[in-house]
Amino acid sequence: MSRNLIILTVTAILLMIFQVLILKYFVIFGIGFCFLYLMFLLFLPLEIGFASAMIIGLIAGLIVDLFYNTLGIHAFACVLITFLRPYWMKWNKPRSGYEVNDLPMITNYGLGWFVIYALPLIFIHALTVFLIESGGNQLVGISILKSAVTALISLVFMIAIQYLFYSKAKR
């Protein structure tokens, strides 16, 4: 458990720094953003409980908001996905069930499971962010397009990073 704690903390700190300093300026065709920092929210183990996960999500969202000048919007979306995440995890159980000491990541449960687990959550997060940003119902089409592209880009980044840096984490 302490090893997982170290992995989570280091991941969280590095991802937040990477997100607010570099990925903030990373935009493809004006529609594709990259919300990589969600990865450590997705890595939170199931046993952590509702309240603490949501509060971690709130804090992470607020930190990102400070740098994006959108105070509260990312926090809203993060709390939303950390709330939905346990239900989605229960519904999307791997065949052998969850191990207590395994973080939900590719090295533990496989690529196919991770895509199904992460993609809808990232999409919901991005959709919430873009809908609140547009502040109304006039831009729904472009918001959905933006969140779809954003979700795909973020997922590709997450998979790449996991294959690059977490491959040795397997015992």
Partner: peptide
């Protein structure tokens, strides 16, 4: 808890 946190977020956004 979820509702409370979201209301807090909406308040921050509107503020």
């Amino acid at each position: 808890t979820f509702l409370t946190l979201e209301v807090l977020c909406i308040w921050i956004i509107v503020r």
